[in-house]
Design a binder for these strands. Structure first.
Lengths: 232, 232
DNA sequence: CATTAAATTTGATCTAGATCAAGATTTTTG
DNA sequence: CAAAAATCTTGATCTAGATCAAATTTAATG
C-alpha cells in the first residue's frame, strides 16, 4: 500500500499502540483503493475477507430483506467497519456502499487475526474497538425502541450540533433520504418531522440546520448520554 | 467460589481453551450468588465492575428512557452478559433483573482484563464472544427495522421451534409481556398477532405453541439466516 | 382453597407513521 | 445551460400498532 496513507491509519485508536513491525506487516498485506460514489463494496451474505478502513469519503452500511432496505450506519473517516464479521470469519450481515468518492483500505482478515495473536497491544485495541461497536449498536436499538421518530430526529440534530462544535448552525452530513432510513422513518415523514421541529426553534435550509431555541429542543429531545453519546 | 460451578463455567466457549491456572485464578476472584426472582442486578448508568455469568435461572436485560421501558434481551444459562461494558470500563447501557430464581457468577472486570493481557487463548475467546454479541445486536436491529411486528413474531416462533428440536410443539420460555417488549410491541398487540397467526396454522395454549402448517408459517415469516440464526 | 394480585385477552378508539400521488427543488449530465 | 433525473416536499389517505377500558384467565398468597 502507498506510504501516504499509513501515517493516517497509524493514528487510529486501533493501530496506535501496536508494535511498529506488526503495523508495517499489516500495511504491506493491505490494499488501498479509490472507489467512485454509489459503488457496492460488499454484499450481505458474502464471506468476510477484509477488515475495511475508510480513509476518506463516506460509506453506508445497509441491509435488505423481502424487498425492504434500511440504512444501519454511515461510516466516516477515519474508522473501520465490519470488524465483527472479519473476526468471526462469518458472512457479512450488512452490505456496504460508498456514498461519496472514497478511499478505502482493505486489510485481509487472516492478517488481522494473525497479528491479534502475536501483539497484545493490538489485541487490546481490537477488543476495545469491538466493545465500542457493540455498545453503539445497543444505543441504536434503545433509540429505536424507546423513542418516537420525532424524538430520534431531535436527538440526532443535537448530536450533530455537538459534533460540529455546539454552534447554533451546522449542516447534516448525509442526504435526507439516508438520514430518514437511519432513523427508521420514511423520507416523507422526515420532511414532516423537520417541519414540526420549527415549533421548537429548528430552521432548515437544505442540509443546513439552525437551532434558535436550544432549551426548547432539548426539552423535547431529552438527550441521554446512555443513548446519544457515541464516545461512551 | 464453590467448586461445583467451576466445571460448568469451564465448558463455556469463553473459558474452554484458556490456561488452567488463569481459569482457577479467575474463579477464585469471583463471587457466586443466588438471587430471587425480580431482583434488579444492575442499573443502567452504573459503573461496570463485574462480568456476569448466568449459571441457572434467567436474566432480562432492559432499558428505560423518559418513563418508557423496553426489553433488549433475555439471557439463559450458561452465558455471559455485559461483556462490552466490562471491557471498556464504561457505564452499563442496560439494566438487568432476574426473571426467575437465578445463580450468577460475578467476575471482577479488572481480573478479566488482567487475564486478557496474559492469556492469548482467553483473549481470542473474549474477542470471539464479543464479536458474536455485536453480530446478534445487528441482527436484532435488522429484525426491528426491516420487519413488521407480525413478521418478527412469526420468525421468533420458528427460531424457538428450531431450538426446541424442530418438533411441531414447543413452549415459549418467557412471559408474553416480556416477549412483546423484546419484539418491540405491546402485550395487547402480541395477543392479537398470535391470533392472526391462527390463519397460518399456529395454535396457542398458554405458553405452549403448536405449528400445524409449517410451510404456510414459513411463507409468511421468510426466515433469513442473516437475521434469525443466532449462531451465525 | 378462597382471596388477591398479576397477566392475558378482547373490544373500541386513536394516532404515529406509511403509502400513494403530485409538485417543487436540486443535482446530474449531455 | 438546457434537459433529464434525482431528491425533497406537500397533501390526501390508509393502516399498523398504541392506548384506554374492561373482562377473563392464570398465578401467587394468606
Amino acid at each position: 500500500m502507498p506510504e501516504l496513507d499509513a501515517p493516517n491509519i497509524r493514528q487510529l485508536e486501533l493501530f496506535k499502540e501496536m508494535d511498529g513491525t506488526h503495523f508495517d506487516a499489516l500495511m504491506r498485506a493491505s490494499y488501498v483503493q479509490n472507489f467512485p460514489p454509489q459503488l457496492e463494496l460488499i454484499s450481505e451474505g458474502d464471506p468476510s475477507d477484509f477488515l475495511h478502513v475508510v480513509v476518506s469519503g463516506c460509506v453506508e452500511l445497509f441491509s435488505s430483506w423481502n424487498g425492504r432496505e434500511s440504512t444501519l450506519a454511515v461510516i466516516r473517516p477515519v474508522s473501520t467497519f465490519i470488524l465483527a464479521a472479519s473476526i468471526r470469519n462469518g458472512p457479512y450481515l450488512m452490505s456496504a456502499r460508498t456514498l461519496e468518492k472514497s478511499r478505502i483500505i482493505l486489510i485481509p482478515s487472516q492478517d488481522v487475526q494473525a497479528v491479534f495473536d502475536k501483539d497484545p497491544k493490538f489485541a487490546r485495541a481490537i477488543v476495545e474497538e469491538l466493545a465500542q461497536v457493540c455498545r453503539n449498536a445497543t444505543k441504536h436499538t434503545k433509540d429505536l425502541k424507546l423513542r418516537t421518530a420525532l424524538e430520534r430526529l431531535a436527538n440526532y440534530l443535537l448530536t450533530q450540533q455537538k459534533q460540529a462544535g455546539n454552534g447554533s448552525n451546522f449542516s447534516i452530513p448525509i442526504e435526507k433520504r439516508h438520514l430518514a432510513s437511519l432513523l427508521g422513518m420514511t423520507p416523507e415523514n422526515l420532511s414532516r418531522a423537520l417541519k414540526k421541529l420549527r415549533a421548537y426553534g429548528v430552521l432548515v435550509d437544505g442540509q443546513i440546520i439552525a437551532i434558535s431555541k436550544q432549551e426548547e429542543l432539548e426539552r423535547l429531545a431529552k438527550p441521554n448520554r446512555l443513548i446519544d453519546d457515541a464516545s461512551l
